[in-house]
Amino acid sequence: MNGDAGPRVAADPAHARELLRQMLRVRRFEEKCVELYSATKIRGFMHVYIGEEAVAAGVLSTLAPDDAVVATYREHGHALLRGVDPGAILAEMYGYQEGCCRGRGGSMHLFDAGTRFYGGNAIVAGGLPLAVGLALADKMAGRSRVTACFFGEGAVAEGEFHESMNLAALWELPVLFCCENNLYAMGTALGRSESQTDLALKAAGYEVAAWAVDGMDVIAVEEAARRAVDAVRAGGGPHFLELRTYRFRAHSMYDPERYREKAEVAQWLERDPVSLLHASLAAAGDLPDTEWERVQRAVDAEVQAAVDFAEAGTPEPVEELTRFVYSERGAQ
């Protein structure tokens, strides 16, 4: 996908500006997370989504509030764009009880019942069977809901990927599988780990409708996702999108990046999804400088408010350590 032209000119500039704003929210939030990690405010393993924003922004804008999302450990952006409160996300990473999981999950395990956000799953491919089950429940209950399941291309090497593709297709379940192909499973390039690198072909082998999309072009992602979501919701069974993208930063905060060339990163940086859409809108005269400045100020203010909220957080009393191992009777 490298070297392709920028995003096509948006048919609806106002909507394209909104997609740009959503991507920028993730970009600025993640940049702040990196800063806070360096300042040791955030600990543990942390994986940022910088470079891949078009995927979550394009797919999530096509979902309805009642749909479900299952994501991976690189899920800050998905949570944010699904509508989880940014302050609660950041407080979670601070390990505070004001966090969306009361500090029990951290960066890799963001959950939110209110937006039907089912994690935050840090076992590669472990979320796919959950998505199959969520969709099974919807189908059995006769609800017209979609479950969107995000995972990286590394997941296709796991048995759970294959078992889930088969089950979803066999039972014609309403799942949208979103494979975020950023070319590296941690440090292992796709071509070094898969005999067949055409990922859509693997899904198609299970009779799952599947195609590849330029994951750096948010307009293309949204168009593909809308087509897929509409088909899934209409009873067309599971669909699979291979979203070809790239992670601009290291895998996690511990990654010295010995496995890829700087030139390759530089080449992909030219396809930065935020810059590309910005340039395209600006060139078409659809994004006045004043408007762009206003958007950036608003996004910065949102991030700062999240930081302020997290900074004001409080640790859960240690007496509550063993809560939430089993449900509190009477609370269900």
Binding site: Y118, G133, L136, L167
Partner: peptide, 26 residues
């Protein structure tokens, strides 16, 4: 067959699907 559901030999898949279905209200 909807409620007495034969599965493929995919223990991780159908166990996870059971967990997901429970999350989904079943």
């Amino acid at each position: 067959p909807e409620r007495i559901r034969d599965t493929p030999l995919s223990e991780s898949g159908f166990v996870g699907a059971g967990i997901g279905a429970a999350l989904g209200g079943m």
